[in-house]
Amino acid sequence: MKPILLQGHERSITQIKYNREGDLLFSVAKDTVTNVWYSVNGERLGTYNGHTGAVWCVDCDWDTKNVLTGSADNSCRLWDCQTGKQLALFNTNSAVRTCGFDFSGNIIMFSTDKQMGYQCFLNFFDLRDPQQIEDNQPYQTIPCTDHKITSAVWGPLGEFVNAGHENGEINQFSAKSGEILNKAKEHTKHINDMQTSVDLTMFVTASKDNTAKLFDSTSLNHIKTFKTERPVNSAAISPIMDHVVMGGGQEAMEVTTTSTRIGKFEARFFHAAYEEEFGRVKGHFGPINCVAFHPDGKSYSSGGEDGYVRIHHFDPHYFDFELEA
């Protein structure tokens, strides 16, 4: 396969996300712009300019009307997807780490970092109520006193949010009442990334403890574990195959002290059921910070510490390959 290289960022990529149909790919990085690309040919559709700090997270709603970004400039912004205009600005006290639309596209959640004397909050806004945006007053705020949220995804039907914490814990917060519905502690370290399956029934976590784990979204039952020998920065579930792709590598600060040969910057493919690795794809010069599957499962993208996003369209080989059980 010939990857398409997207050079829209000057610093390391923090998150990439496809929209529901997969024709657009959003990428955010530690620089201030948010890029949107046509995933089919890598053409850049535009940029959302306005943030003044590193952008940590991006999300797009189901009908690709609005885009939500959260940044270290203590703000979360809502954009018009088509024109790149800023629709709303949510100011916070600390950096916004994760953000997301629920499935209806009406309710957004975002979490803030524990920093500068402020603790970590998980905020919920209803976009149908302009008063909430105007007053910057979320209808629901959940404080997390102990360990900050490092990654979060919506569960099915927009009823709750599954949040991964920096100590490896996963909590399920109700979007209505704000109470904790479920808990799981399977990871021992920082959860870097969480991504759901297409039907939102499962999600995969990527943790600094060198593993990625598959969970049931509602019960938080631990289903599978994928082990590697390096921190996992991101993991994604294939929508059509029983595959999980993982990106990682040693920590960015250690990259210069080890050779690229042992850096292990490949994207690694695991069989979701057998928990066994079956393939690797090289390409990045640094650790992979985020991976995402195209919703049709025929291509995937990865964004790295090297600042590039690479779109890979799978060779026919990939679809024929079967793991010997």
Partner: peptide, 25 residues
């Protein structure tokens, strides 16, 4: 729109390039 406002239709070479062939091992 944005930084790509004045780009011609089709991929812009400044931001989009095709990289060398890689294979899944």
């Amino acid at each position: 729109f944005g930084n790509s406002e004045f780009d011609a239709p089709g991929p812009n070479v400044a931001t989009t390039t095709v990289s060398d062939d890689v294979f899944m091992t």
